[in-house]
Nucleic acid binder design. Structure first.
Lengths: 243, 243
DNA sequence: AGAATATGAGAACGATGTTCGCAATAGGAA
DNA sequence: TTCCTATTGCGAACATCGTTCTCATATTCT
């Protein structure tokens, strides 16, 4: 048949415009940028096809000229929010990895919908690839294979993702509950009080009471730094064993 | 006013049945169990209120006598699938933490919807609390505070969550795409080939080609064990420094 | 017995992602 | 230039979703 070449299912392989018809009014990256702004400002649930269409001044169904499914748009949003991730190695691998970890955490905190959107999404977009490539440049000259280096870096990034996930879980739950932050916290407080008064979970209760006495964000910062150092120590042990 | 006591917003605080009316035909845990089975078998997207209602043989709107929102049902599903997590410490902390990490990974692999459902969900259900409490019993007698022990364990669990998330991301994407696994992999292959032929990302390309030569699941197992040992090494360093 | 209150469920509402069909547009071929 | 064909934009419609309303029914307390 003549028209055998269909549009590829991988979004990154679809060409920007067709050879024949009118010039498209928008482009995929631009639409994704608008969607990211909406998600940052109003939460991921506000990102509906109709909402995006209104924001860029087009009809809703026109979006399907750019994305076969909403999922493709989300792929572009995730990769777009990831950013280019340019960074220049300082030569001090420990400092470099700390910088990468902190930057990744900042990205997730700046776009709090990303932790949710990233779940179950194997992103291989340009930005992700760029990050991977530049990160693999680290830890060379320690006698490790590329795969071994990837394991080290993946372990670190997995930790960052997991940490931020629990760090922002409360905020997301509040947003989704529709309750005010005060009301939500009051309800939570009552629940925890009921756990405490139950007498079970003695060790956990100690943590609850300790947490109440400390400032939330500095507690998170300290926890993040502690876990980060833990993993960096593990990497250091690996490197000294290999080198 | 007399009717001032409304149902608490935290699902775990709502009583099983009211004081006056007929006996409920179902219970929350049972409904959650059915929902878990559907999610395990047909994916999380198949878990709609109508689908659950049909499965337990009730009307759709009746579910709202048990859960104020679908989100509450998801909370119970997550906590239910977590399981009691009973385990008896062996005295060898390294072996114990390895067991916990492996068991957590198994849980996530057995209920692949959990990684997605857990995103942005601060679960404090009974099973989660039981797990936390028993896990905090580990690493005592090393001169660490409860919070310090929590940081160590949280770091480990964060890693497990992050690792499994990327481990199953492909499977979830295939399921959501509607494509056959073969078609999806063929498309992915074509995309990667286009990256390779682009000449960019030389380090990343090496990894792709290496991955193709190895068996997928043993590769995952090895990667998991490697990252796990990395973190356990970090914990060991921390313990020797503290003790 | 009667009052009070919880349960079960059919019908309906608003919102969502997506598809269909058609008019308008613009590049390639004659 | 002229016709053909592929492509865009989009209004309307569809199936499905979570959720609410309302009311008959069932049970327990006074």
């Amino acid at each position: 048949m003549a028209g055998d070449n269909v549009a590829p299912s991988v979004i990154w392989m679809r060409s920007a415009r067709g050879a024949r018809g009118p010039q498209p009014s928008h482009d995929r990256q631009g639409i994704a940028r608008v969607a990211i702004e909406i998600a940052d400002r109003e939460g991921i649930d506000a990102v509906s096809m109709r909402r995006i269409a209104t924001a860029i001044g087009s009809g809703t169904s026109s979006l399907y000229r750019y994305f076969a499914r909403k999922d493709d748009l989300l792929n572009l949003m995730v990769d777009g929010a990831l950013g280019s991730g340019d960074f220049s190695p300082s030569g001090d691998w420990r400092a470099d990895l700390g910088t990468i970890a902190a930057a990744t955490r900042e990205t997730f905190l700046a776009h709090r919908w990303m932790v949710t959107a990233l779940a179950g999404r194997p992103t291989l977009g340009p930005n992700r690839l760029k990050r991977l490539e530049s990160t693999l440049g680290l830890l060379e000259e320690h006698g490790l294979s590329a795969r071994e280096r990837l394991v080290l870096i993946d372990t670190l990034i997995s930790y960052v993702r997991g940490f931020v996930a629990s760090e922002i879980a409360d905020d997301i739950a509040i947003e989704a509950s529709g309750l005010s932050a005060e009301q939500w916290r009051a309800d939570q407080e009552a629940y925890i009080a009921s756990i405490v008064s139950s007498g079970a979970y003695p060790r956990t209760i100690g943590l609850f009471e300790e947490s109440r006495r400390l400032n939330g964000s500095t507690l998170q910062d300290q926890g993040f730094a502690a876990g980060l150092n833990l993993i960096l120590d593990g990497i250091a042990a690996k490197l000294s064993r290999a080198g």
